[in-house]
Amino acid sequence: MDALMSITCKKFKDVYNICTQSMTKILSGSQRVKSHYFCKKDLFKTYTEVIGALLENENHWTLFFCDLTKQEVTYMDPFGEANGKKNEILKNWSYFAKAKGCALKWTRNDVPHPRQEDGHSCGVHVLMFAQALLEGKGFVDGYASVDIPQLRAQFCNILFSSLDRGVKCTVCWSVLMKEKGRKKNLPELVLNLPKKMKTKTSIFSALTEGEASDLATGLTKSLCQNVSPKLVRKDISDHNAEVTRTTLASVRANLQSSLDSRSAFSLLTHTFGPQAVDGVLGFISESLK
């Protein structure tokens, strides 16, 4: 979400995009916002607008937007905004602004928008809200629930198109490079690649280890939430299910011992690979019970 919000705001020079972690702290009323070390940038004097996505209850994206010149605060929830929540957001933003030396009187601004009709498209809605507000619109339109899959694909394309593949990731490069004149123990598939391809960074090079780990965890959670164990267990006898579970347990143990944090697979995927594989195998094993 941070990456897509940053890309969305890039062409708006007077807009400051607050990262999701900081925005969530600010609008939850955290005492940390009073710290001198929290958000050092003097955004109230440097920018005209502030925007940021926040993650609520660790599973739902909403959007915050503030017009600093008009002193207006906009809070948008894809499911709809309750008055109590909007007042809470206004109060916590005022608290943050005052802590940064900007004791102004802020007012609420409500913006009509399409509503989320499922349990997994809040991020797409928030990005569409952000685009509309940054373009100066007083409302959000131009898309419906049936457009969500296509919009998600468009955002995915924007994200991957923005990666700078000309920069080498130091972690990936350290695995692929030669050491003391001898090649490292890399898979034959990698060793046989053309020289230029060996030095290219992967899509994981744009992620920190923490982000890659979160991505793997998210994949496993999504698998558990959206794929029924009955689908995995379909037409499999109890005997065959138990035999398969026993085999999977051995496979998981072998991979866990071999694909540790120092393995090439882990380093090249910034820890995503081994965690994702283990999560998928664990899901299949649990589904066969």
Score class of each variant (00 low, 15 high):
2 D>N: 11
5 M>F: 04
7 I>H: 04
8 T>A: 10
9 C>A: 09
12 F>A: 01
14 D>A: 13
17 N>Y: 06
19 C>K: 07
21 Q>M: 01
23 M>P: 00
24 T>Q: 07
29 G>D: 04
29 G>M: 06
31 Q>W: 09
31 Q>L: 11
35 S>A: 14
36 H>S: 15
37 Y>R: 12
38 F>H: 07
40 K>R: 13
40 K>M: 09
42 D>H: 12
45 K>R: 12
45 K>F: 10
45 K>E: 15
47 Y>E: 01
49 E>G: 02
50 V>E: 02
50 V>R: 00
51 I>A: 12
52 G>N: 04
57 N>S: 12
58 E>G: 00
63 L>A: 02
63 L>Q: 03
64 F>K: 01
67 D>G: 03
70 K>D: 08
71 Q>G: 02
71 Q>T: 14
72 E>G: 00
72 E>D: 14
74 T>Y: 02
75 Y>E: 04
78 P>H: 08
79 F>R: 12
80 G>H: 12
81 E>L: 11
87 N>G: 09
90 L>Y: 02
94 S>C: 05
96 F>H: 02
99 A>T: 10
101 G>H: 12
103 A>Q: 11
106 W>P: 02
108 R>Y: 04
108 R>T: 07
109 N>G: 06
113 H>D: 05
115 R>T: 04
117 E>V: 10
117 E>P: 00
123 G>P: 01
124 V>M: 05
125 H>Y: 15
126 V>D: 00
126 V>A: 06
127 L>S: 03
129 F>Q: 08
137 K>G: 07
138 G>P: 04
138 G>H: 13
141 D>Q: 11
143 Y>S: 05
146 V>E: 07
147 D>V: 02
152 R>C: 11
152 R>F: 13
157 N>A: 14
157 N>E: 13
158 I>Y: 09
163 L>V: 13
167 V>W: 09
169 C>I: 06
169 C>H: 13
171 V>Y: 08
174 S>V: 00
175 V>T: 04
177 M>N: 11
178 K>A: 08
179 E>I: 13
180 K>R: 07
180 K>Q: 07
181 G>K: 07
182 R>Q: 11
186 L>P: 01
186 L>G: 01
188 E>V: 00
188 E>L: 11
190 V>P: 02
191 L>W: 01
191 L>Q: 05
193 L>T: 01
194 P>T: 01
196 K>D: 15
198 K>I: 06
199 T>A: 09
200 K>A: 08
203 I>Y: 06
205 S>H: 11
205 S>K: 08
208 T>H: 04
210 G>S: 14
210 G>Y: 09
211 E>A: 14
213 S>E: 14
214 D>M: 12
217 T>K: 12
218 G>C: 09
221 K>L: 14
222 S>M: 11
223 L>V: 09
224 C>Q: 13
225 Q>H: 06
225 Q>K: 05
230 K>G: 04
231 L>E: 05
231 L>M: 08
240 N>H: 10
245 R>G: 12
246 T>I: 08
251 V>M: 14
256 Q>F: 08
256 Q>N: 14
256 Q>T: 15
261 S>D: 14
262 R>N: 15
263 S>E: 03
266 S>M: 11
270 H>N: 05
272 F>W: 13
274 P>I: 13
275 Q>D: 15
282 G>Y: 04
282 G>K: 03
285 S>T: 10
286 E>F: 06
